[in-house]
Design a protein around this nucleic acid. Structure first.
Lengths: 207, 207
DNA sequence: AGCACATCTTGCAGTCAGTGCAACTTTGCA
DNA sequence: TGCAAAGTTGCACTGACTGCAAGATGTGCT
């Protein structure tokens, strides 16, 4: 029961998708997001404009084409974590794994950041993505804390965690880069904050 | 130097703006946001479609027509706060004042929440607004903590504070309403969390 | 190989948000 | 009264996105 041979159809779809992403990102880098039309992308990827929307629901979605993959990988880890592992542990391990693979600091990631930074429409999408991470974490944290899903403290924690996640992507300020160690230290700083906040809540009126 | 008599021009602009808001919200409530076109709104408000965009930059903006007012009032308080008052104190006082005026629980607020809840486009705008609050708080908190603006801990704190702010608007779950006291208690819970997190950071490696 | 079915792909026509521009109207002010 | 500033409108246009129906292309079965 290895993977069934992908089949021509699937292969072609993958190729088309890759072509769209490749050409779209190239055009975005060259002319900017707003100055690139879906028609431009379609032409460069050698498909009909109408076909584009069979692959992506919007122009913005291409920029975040691998979001579902990232999201899914964290979701899987969270769902599969043993009872001994907190959501934070899982989050930290996930980040560490991504850093290890260099996934957070490749050229595409940098360009995405640049694009988002300069395009309001993409900022909106980016925030929406972050919100999905936040919701995912909120549920996991709620389970950890044995509080109902959707409760305030779970949201507080998740929001701060999401902010840390967001901060990892920000390369603003002095230096261009950040070493994996520095990134992980940033994450740890966030976790100290979260843990401290949760401890304080536990000490105080029991809600 | 009282207010200069508003003048006919200003008065008319105000009237037009109010008409747009009133009619737009009515239509949104009746048919939903997506099913209402700018042309519909313009017709109901008795203006040309083109004129709509002289008042609002987008259809979404009408739903949040009073955002700048809210935002400005917090910004003013933060900027004017004495050195003895932390950003959190100011935030809490602001919320208390809003609750006191009943601004957080009028019919329009409830309807806005309902609309946002059911309309992706509005969720995006809502998050964008929240992000502006977050940025505002982040700067104030950075000043309080004597850390550079844009630093991680300021963002962590601001993100959690923004989450609390957001939670105040959420009426989901069991009961429909929430008393001002309950709301303020919610805010205090958040502040305990934030303070606890910040204390933990202070205890740990000094960054 | 050949057929029938499912699954893309595409073109077409249409909706709607949002913009630039130029003409026209209204208001403010001397 | 008359001129300048500000506001309104119509028009033409761009561009994202959708539904639909027709055509092209894999896929499984015989």
């Amino acid at each position: 029961m290895a993977q069934d041979a992908p089949g021509l159809r699937e292969r072609k779809k993958r190729q088309t998708r890759e072509a769209i992403v490749r050409e779209a990102l190239r055009l975005f880098a060259e002319r900017g997001f707003d100055a690139t039309t879906v028609a431009d992308i379609a032409e460069a990827a050698d498909i009909a404009p109408r076909t584009f929307f069979g692959y992506f629901p919007s122009k913005e979605a291409v920029v975040f084409h691998d979001f579902e993959e990232y999201f899914g990988s964290l979701a899987t880890r969270l769902a599969a974590r043993p009872a001994s592992q907190t959501a934070f542990d899982t989050l930290r391990a996930w980040i560490a794994a991504l850093l290890d693979e260099g996934r957070l600091d490749d050229p595409e990631e940098r360009m995405r950041h640049e694009l988002v930074h300069t395009t309001p429409a993409l900022q909106a999408q980016d925030r929406a993505n972050l919100a999905r991470f936040e919701a995912l974490l909120a549920d996991a944290v709620a389970d950890d804390l044995d509080v109902p899903r959707g409760s305030l403290r779970a949201h507080l924690v998740a929001a701060a965690a999401a902010a840390a996640l967001d901060a990892l992507g920000r390369h603003d300020g002095a230096r261009e880069q950040r070493s994996p160690d520095e990134s992980l230290a940033l994450m740890d700083e966030a976790l100290v904050f979260l843990q401290g906040g949760m401890d304080a809540l536990r000490r105080h009126p029991p809600a």
